[in-house]
Simulated scan of single mutants.
Amino acid sequence: MASFIVSLTYTAPIEAIDALLEKHVAWLREQHAAGHLLGWGRKVPREGGILLAKGESKPAVEALASQDPFVKGGVATIEVIEWAHGFLDDSISGLAG
């Protein structure tokens, strides 16, 4: 398993984001329960979000992220970045493959 950072960028007004927020959070929780997502949060300022993911490949994580209700709803775009961690604190060791 490889580690990925998924960067979401909002492409619509916050009102459109908020209209899909409940579905987005439910999707995040489902993906966490399935072992795909290890963490997430909003960018500051609120222009998108960051997801910490594990997956077999970049295309697999891109396919997963494209199912996010924000992306499916046309209010956000994604960028998937694979990263090879050189050091992880014990508190985030779950990111290790």
Rank of each mutant, 00 (worst) to 15 (best):
G94S: 14
M1R: 14
P45F: 03
G55H: 05
A34S: 09
V6L: 06
L38K: 09
A19W: 00
Q31V: 03
G48R: 04
G94W: 03
L28Y: 00
A53R: 02
Y10E: 05
Y10H: 06
W27S: 00
G97F: 05
A84H: 14
A63Y: 06
G97A: 10
S7A: 13
S7E: 13
G35D: 04
G74S: 03
F4V: 03
I17K: 08
S91Q: 14
K58S: 05
A76F: 01
A60F: 08
V61M: 03
A33E: 13
L8V: 01
K58L: 15
W83Q: 07
W40Q: 06
I14K: 13
K43S: 02
L52C: 02
L8E: 06
A63S: 12
G86E: 11
S3R: 11
A26C: 02
E56C: 06
H32V: 13
S91R: 15
V25P: 00
Q31E: 14
V44D: 12
V44N: 07
A34M: 10
K54F: 05
Q31W: 04
E15G: 07
I5K: 08
P45Q: 11
L38Y: 09
L37S: 02
I5N: 12
A96N: 13
H24K: 01
P45W: 06
I17Q: 08
H85Q: 13
P69L: 06
I5T: 15
A2H: 15
R29P: 00
H85I: 12
A60N: 01
F4T: 07
I14R: 14
I17E: 10
A60M: 06
P45Y: 07
E82G: 11
I78P: 05
P45T: 08
A19V: 01
A53K: 03
L88A: 09
S66P: 07
H85M: 14
G73R: 04
G41A: 01
D90V: 13
G48I: 00
L21Q: 08
V75T: 03
P69Y: 05
T77F: 09
K43P: 00
S66Q: 11
A34K: 14
H36I: 04
V80D: 07
A26L: 11
K58N: 01
T77I: 11
A12C: 07
S3E: 10
K43M: 02
A60C: 05
S57M: 13
I17Y: 07
A76L: 05
T9E: 09
